[in-house]
């Protein structure tokens, strides 16, 4: 296992790529991502639709469609996931790495009772656990998320949206995985229920001491939940830093522009900024910074060469040529 700067990395991702193969060429959904997830932290992964955040999340569980080609390395508690066969992955999913999806209705089996979801999950991974013990574990997990034990005999459709998401959370944590990936867990919920669920996720996480990757498009949600935040744009991880650095001292022009375009409820801030244009198509996309066409600070170099991951300080990484000069020697290039 890795210890980085006194922090223990539960998950390490190195030069990770996911390309979807199509008849017209590869769609480079995730292209060269490096990051670590520390123990007990929540890493927020934000970006707009099509930036690759969900692809990255699903890739860690290796549940992508067959057209996806993955390369690079992913280590979970020291184990190399990319070299694992499907059979071995099945043993890890749910036990060591779990996923909470956006829409619990489509990820739960509608004709299976709640208790059967739990017993199946528990007994697949731990065949030594008896039916009764599994039910006990299920009841405890439900209690942790605020659902009464008596609902074990209900079907998923008998739950409201918020309750269903609570149940999904209970199901994902019942085996105490080291890493939970939550992919837009509150996006389909109303704002008050969303606040309830976020509060619950926070409590649960500190209670079971797992790490979490929280994938969302909502910069408000990560502001509340995440310790560190990674910002994705068009398949690149463009900035990675502790939460407050992202909000108050962002460096990448995309992060800056994105933050300015998010509506807030501060009545003294009535300016509505926006980013011109649209994200690029990732089909056959070549070298260069992918934000270049919309970037107010674009330089010639940006369009020709993909920027490196520039390490600003221990915990702050920016993928941008603007900051490369103080670290590399080609200063003429960067300021040109």
């Amino acid at each position: 296992m890795n210890i980085v700067d006194g922090k223990e990395a539960v998950c390490r991702i190195e030069d990770f790529r996911v390309h979807y193969m199509t008849f017209d060429g590869p769609v480079k959904a995730v292209d060269g991502v490096n990051m670590e997830v520390y123990r007990e932290e929540t890493l927020g992964l934000v970006g707009e639709s099509g930036c690759g955040k969900s692809t990255l999340g699903s890739a860690l569980l290796k549940i992508l469609p067959r057209t996806a080609r993955m390369s690079g390395k992913v280590y979970l508690e020291g184990e190399d996931l990319m070299s694992k066969m499907e059979k071995e992955m099945q043993k890890l999913r749910g036990a060591k790495i779990a996923m909470i999806f956006q829409d619990p209705m489509t990820s739960l089996n509608p004709i299976m009772k709640v208790k059967d979801h739990f017993t199946e999950m528990i007994r697949t991974h731990k065949p030594e656990v008896s039916e009764e013990q599994a039910l006990e574990m299920a009841a405890r997990a439900l209690e942790e998320v605020g659902i009464s034990e008596s609902r074990l005999n209900d079907y998923p459709f008998q739950f409201s949206g918020g309750m269903r998401q609570r149940m999904m959370i209970a199901l994902s944590i019942v085996l105490r995985p080291a890493l939970v990936i939550a992919d837009e867990p509150t996006t389909s919920l109303d704002v008050i229920v969303q606040a309830q669920i976020l509060q619950l996720m926070k409590e649960i996480q500190s209670h079971i001491r797992s790490s979490m990757i929280l994938i969302t498009h909502d910069l408000g949600v990560v502001a509340e939940m995440a310790h560190r935040i990674g910002v994705m744009y068009a398949g690149h991880l463009v900035e990675l830093a502790p939460r407050d650095v992202i909000y108050y001292r962002p460096l990448h022009p995309y992060t800056v522009a994105l933050l300015e375009s998010v509506p807030n409820t501060d009545i003294n801030d009535m300016d509505l900024d926006y980013i011109e244009g649209y994200p690029p198509s990732l089909l056959n996309i070549g070298e260069g910074c992918r934000f270049a066409d919309r970037c107010p600070k674009v330089m010639k170099l940006c369009r020709d060469r993909t920027p490196p991951d520039v390490q600003i300080d221990e915990e702050h990484i920016v993928k941008c040529w603007l900051y490369a000069d103080s670290f590399e020697e080609d200063e003429d290039n960067a300021s040109g």
């Binding site: 008050i192 976020l198 408000g220 502001a223 939460r243 909000y247 807030n264």
Partner: peptide, 9 residues
């Protein structure tokens, strides 16, 4: 309940 893009707020 509205999530704000501002941790301090």
């Amino acid at each position: 309940a509205v999530p704000e893009p501002d941790p301090k707020a």
